[in-house]
Amino acid sequence: MAYRILFCLFICGLIIVDGMPGIAQGAGEYFEEETMDPDQKIKVDSMAMEKIRDLSKYIGIIGNKSTPFSEANRVVARALELFADGSVIGVSTLDKKEVKQYEIKTYFERLMALSYDKVKIEWFDIQYISDLEQTPDGKYVGVVTIYQKFEGSQNDALVYKDVTKKDITIYVERKMMQVEGMDIDFWDVLLGDIVVSETML
């Protein structure tokens, strides 16, 4: 409200002249973009959700104390294969304003160190999948939002629980491979940066 009043007061006392400070801008320029065929988009969405479910399954295994160290390491390696190089994960909580940012591998290593006796991850049956947008290098990018309830127990007692919203970047790229001398093109889906935020729910 104060913002509106301040601007109104401001605008009343203003004389416009040319030569304002340097701002890169344009007057509502519209960009045409190549969009993905809707049927193809449904297939890509499904592939992305499959990868996200795999990730969720891996997190459950990595965070569980009963998982042998060697098995946890193997699962971390599998989980890392889901991601594009250099992906990071940002974690925010309701009580702290700071957003902690980790490389994906570091995040998994921290998860291994948590060592709950039991980890329970439940999905809300609602997710949101954005449109896919083309990037300058010809890939497509989208964001999938999911909600998860996490419960960590020790000695049969619940020691930590939260409900988080996860905004997960997905990269989609058309690739070509040769099968028995024939060129086959396919869509490859990789996960990218993730923002995990605690919700009020």
């Binding site: 701002i23 960009f31 973009e33 083309q134 990037t135 300058p136 010809g138």
Partner: peptide, 11 residues
């Protein structure tokens, strides 16, 4: 816009 895609840029 860049090539056939879009990107956020600092304004």
């Amino acid at each position: 816009r860049e090539n056939m895609g879009t990107k956020w840029v600092l304004a």
